[in-house]
Design a protein around this nucleic acid. Sequence first.
DNA 1: AACGGGAATGAAAATCATTTTCATTTGTGA
DNA 2: TCACAAATGAAAATGATTTTCATTCCCGTT
Lengths: 121, 121
Amino acid sequence: MSRSNPRVLSTLERAGGFASAQEVYRLMQREGESIGLTTIYRSLQSLVNDKIVDVLRRDDGEAIYRLCGEAHHHHLVCKSCGDTVEIEGGAIEKWAKVMAEEHGFRDIGHTAEIFGLCAKC
Amino acid sequence: MSRSNPRVLSTLERAGGFASAQEVYRLMQREGESIGLTTIYRSLQSLVNDKIVDVLRRDDGEAIYRLCGEAHHHHLVCKSCGDTVEIEGGAIEKWAKVMAEEHGFRDIGHTAEIFGLCAKC
DNA sequence: AACGGGAATGAAAATCATTTTCATTTGTGA
DNA sequence: TCACAAATGAAAATGATTTTCATTCCCGTT
Ligand SMILES: [Zn+2]
Ligand SMILES: [Zn+2]
Ligand SMILES: [Zn+2]
Ligand SMILES: [Zn+2]
């Protein structure tokens, strides 16, 4: 596998930590950086593998990459404008544990996302 | 706009109420039905507009259409053998609603999955 | 410095779901 | 029967993502 090109991560940060591969590409072009789209896809994929960014899907199916902090959290995402709020899992954390025990599962993780329309949309 | 071709809805039901457009197409072909892919996309879109089916996204970005009224549930998946258990959302359902309200989001949906190692693995 | 091999890069082609175009067929009411 | 709108689907277009593959870059060794 390949390692992430640092300029890609840097651009994702500059984009507000939330963008599609195509958007990162256009942004870098606009700023005069010379890079291939392929490298952007590869770098983002590598960042996902390393759990440095999350990947979600827009309503239209395009993948959006989001820089994630260390702390475990969940997302509230606007279906229309892509605005994202990091939220606490609250009751989910216990729910996951209880459900897993109940069915004999161990070594668990979980994902939970909420999608909807934000106040502006 | 166009109205939904009834054979498409019937096929989606027969598929367990959960399939992509391409899967509906392949299923109808296998059963000897003559229909164009375009009509399937149009019909599914129309069913979505009429709120007869939901549309979600697979991890790979492909749209999957789900008959509304299918019981809402979540999954507990084994990372190793792929075994899957359908589970109730429990506290999650209220969590999603509360979190959304708190941030001014409306018209929401959510996803939540737990993954781990099952008893056999 | 010259060499060599593996990693990184990116242009171009391939893939694949979905949408658009547009010519043809079908249904329906006057 | 006629006219006309809606429905259909083949084919082309679109657009994101992946694959291919030749070239370039990096780095340690001779
Ligand atoms: Zn919004
Ligand atoms: Zn959590
Ligand atoms: Zn298992
Ligand atoms: Zn739920």
